[in-house]
């Protein structure tokens, strides 16, 4: 099928958007499994450091705030795209990617600190489940940053008009999803454990 041709279901729904919502629903279950595993193993520290000793809530709160604000910049980028304002859209897309990178930097710093304090991937079931959960989330953020950067490059090279499909909208859905998963992780993994 040629690019730019509408992809719709027999009911008139946009196929790519429908597929994205289905993908996000499956991702919810993926993260649900990881969060359940973390809660199951959070007390099994094998004598290593536990959440109370390690977690720095003020630091993680700043990271959470950064990711929350990236959802704002993303929705503003989406809004600008809907209004065919390419310049504003690029600005907000770049801001979102920048905030995503700040969040990733914070996570890298946090992981480095934890490893320095004796929490390695194989230290305990608590450590493994914590790194798997937050690491997978970080990987999702990194993929999101990559997608946002691609959008910015494409907007300069070919433009992101409505005929090219709903790329910005799909990336926005993915990015907001990454944010809502962090809302759950921040509450369940960080705030409830200290």
């Amino acid at each position: 099928m040629a690019a730019g041709v509408a992809h719709t279901t027999s009911g008139g729904l946009d196929l790519r958007k429908t597929a994205m919502w289905a993908f996000l629903a499956s991702e919810l279950m993926f993260f649900g499994a990881l969060i359940s595993t973390f809660l199951l193993y959070r007390g099994r520290t094998n004598g290593g450091p536990d959440a109370k000793e390690l977690f720095d809530i003020p630091f993680t709160s700043v990271s959470s705030f950064v990711l929350l604000m990236s959802s704002l910049t993303m929705v503003l980028a989406h809004n600008a795209w809907e209004k065919h304002d390419q310049r504003q859209m690029r600005l907000w897309l770049m801001s979102t990617a920048g905030l995503g990178l700040v969040f990733l930097g914070g996570q890298f710093f946090e992981f480095s600190t934890f490893v320095h304090e004796g929490l390695k991937l194989d230290t305990s079931p608590f450590a493994s489940s914590f790194y798997m959960l937050t690491g997978f989330h970080g990987a999702h953020v990194a993929v999101g940053v990559l997608m946002l950067s691609t959008m910015v490059i494409l907007s300069y090279r070919v433009g992101l008009d409505h005929k090219r499909g709903m790329n910005v909208e799909l990336v926005a859905l993915y990015w907001h999803f990454v944010d809502i998963v962090w809302i759950v992780i921040f509450t369940v993994v960080y705030l409830l454990q200290v």
């Binding site: 729904l13 919502w21 996000l24 649900g32 359940s36 944010d179």
Partner: peptide, 25 residues
């Protein structure tokens, strides 16, 4: 932000079905 409030029932159903699946899991 995700505008799900403005989306058709099918998309709402899909997302909340996934959410319920995650909670059930």
């Amino acid at each position: 932000f995700m505008h799900l409030k403005y989306e058709p029932f099918t998309m709402n159903f899909m997302f909340y079905f996934g959410l319920l699946g995650a909670i059930a899991l």
